[in-house]
């Protein structure tokens, strides 16, 4: 049969119907798999409520902050040391950049010292000495108008200056946005 002259002369179509349909099913399956991967990714990604670590945490109003240059404030909920330096407010992530230990404020020496391996940092988080590869990580800090909720000022990788901010403004720490400290050489 396959040798019949009609079949031999019949042109072989580049893609026949079955091949096309099979390719279409496979493409749909591939697309579907990608969808499932995306859904799984979004499903597994944790979301954070306000006031929860990983989300936005309120640190009180500007008037409640410690005086500039005094000991930083320990905020366990935000896993943060809130430091009010001369240059402005910094929210430092509590975890040492060396191996993940929790460092502490040493009031006598006026610096952060990690109990594990002795890394030391200034009140604004910058590296002094020790095995840590970089300065302390920071969270994004915002000043919010208490009445309108409007963002008055935002500081990403610099301290938040308080000069032009009213005393009743709320300081917010966005613990979902971490800024990696500067690597020293």
């Amino acid at each position: 049969m396959s040798n019949s002259p009609e079949q031999a002369t019949q042109k072989r179509v580049p893609v026949n119907r079955r091949e096309f349909l099979n390719l279409a099913w496979l493409a749909s399956l591939g697309f579907f798999t990608l969808n499932i991967a995306g859904v799984t990714y979004l499903f597994s990604m944790p979301r954070f409520k306000e006031g929860e670590f990983g989300g936005v945490v309120n640190a009180g109003s500007v008037s409640e902050l410690p005086a500039p240059g005094s000991a930083p404030l320990n905020l366990p909920v935000a896993k943060t040391w809130l430091s009010n330096t001369e240059a402005g407010v910094v929210a430092l992530y509590k975890v040492c950049t060396h191996l993940g230990c929790l460092y502490n404020w040493n009031n006598q020496q006026q610096k952060f010292i990690c109990p594990c391996h002795g890394s030391q940092f200034e009140a604004d988080g910058s590296y002094i000495k020790g095995p840590a590869p970089r300065s302390l990580d920071r969270f994004v800090v915002r000043a919010i108008d208490p009445n309108t909720g409007e963002v008055l000022a935002e500081a990403v990788d610099s301290p938040l200056p308080l000069e032009n901010i009213p005393a009743n403004a709320i300081i917010q720490i966005d613990t979902g946005k971490k800024v990696t400290g500067v690597t020293h050489t």
């Binding site: 597994s44 990604m45 944790p46 975890v95 979902g176 971490k178």
Partner: peptide
Amino acid sequence: GQQLNLLLRGAPD
């Protein structure tokens, strides 16, 4: 990195 860490830990820590 940060996404991977969130996926593994289900939270920042």
